[in-house]
Write a protein that binds this DNA or RNA. Sequence first.
DNA 1: GTTTTGGTAGCACGACTGTGCTAGTTGGAA
DNA 2: TTCCAACTAGCACAGTCGTGCTACCAAAAC
Lengths: 202, 202
Amino acid sequence: MPIVVDPVQRRLDVVAAVVRVIRRDGMEHVSVRNVAREAGLSMGSLRHYFVSQSELMIFAFQTIIDRIEARLAALQPAADPRQRAEQVLAELLPLDDERRAENEVWLAFTARATADPALRELRAGAYDNLRAGCRHLITGLSAAGLAPTDIPAETERLHAWLDGLAVHAAMRADLHTPESLTAAIARHLDALAIEAKALRLT
Amino acid sequence: MPIVVDPVQRRLDVVAAVVRVIRRDGMEHVSVRNVAREAGLSMGSLRHYFVSQSELMIFAFQTIIDRIEARLAALQPAADPRQRAEQVLAELLPLDDERRAENEVWLAFTARATADPALRELRAGAYDNLRAGCRHLITGLSAAGLAPTDIPAETERLHAWLDGLAVHAAMRADLHTPESLTAAIARHLDALAIEAKALRLT
DNA sequence: GTTTTGGTAGCACGACTGTGCTAGTTGGAA
DNA sequence: TTCCAACTAGCACAGTCGTGCTACCAAAAC
């Protein structure tokens, strides 16, 4: 073997190249050749790590998903449900460059997944996981009297609001600063608490 | 001239073909050839109506945007702010096949617009218009005591929730029935009213 | 009648696509 | 040393891409 390079790391390097191409040129320019060039590999070499383009796309999407879920899992869970919710939601919104990139790429894959069965399945799984995470947050808040007791309804509302805000942040990054996004988080959580309190009094 | 066909109608027919290709095969298969075949035209004929692919894409996106905004404008505005809000929000969510198709295609264009300056501009304009519409609804609700008085904050919240729900409906059409979507609208508007009332009492 | 105009059709070109395939190269194992 | 597996490189093929271009046709204008 030549210079020993961890094959796992190589595959991740290729994913990084995919991400750069998507962000710079758009999903429609993600070809085997472009990715190979971006990764500094020959076509043949790239094909040694990914036998087909579809395998490459699936691995790239899965890697992005894994990274986001790993970051969430690594959070030191706050005991206070309100703090916990702020923590998790802040982790899921594009508050820094890394997450801005992730968010853009996520959207690109999400769109492509509509017409690609394999990507569709990955997307559905990620959707379900995020929905479960939202439900968990709402359950905690609700138990503390900080959210209404209709768990499914508030879960759906939080989930839709969260993804919508992420889409908006990707569409108009100039209008959505880290400050405005964190403020939006606080506002939604405040609203849930106020509503819960009002419902309790009736 | 041969059979006289309204050139405006022809262009709209081509847009319909674009929509079908996007829904059936995905945005990456929208080529001049595929669209021409889908529209029952030769390549040369298609190019008589659209000199370039980019002009075709821009016109198609603009047409979708116009159609949605025209449908909104055609609504008989209810006097009651709550009914008005329900009316408008229901018009913007994919409650029937026509709007499901529009929603899917809208998402595809939205993704493509990230790397295409011309589409980006159209998208930004549509975003601003929808945001203004949300602001209008919130202003009416707020004046009637049915929404908190922080107009910008509630506008952003409504807008994000709305677009997020539309994305979710496109991603998991099976989980988002017309019934669940209209229920979600009612729930969010109820929440705004409850919150407004609670804030007024403090 | 001829000319003009609006529309249709499709070939040709060069560029790019994914993938099959062969050849070569390198470093550790036998 | 020989051998082998991991890896790199890139050519070849068939197909698709957007677009430039010419040819053709039918009806309206002249």
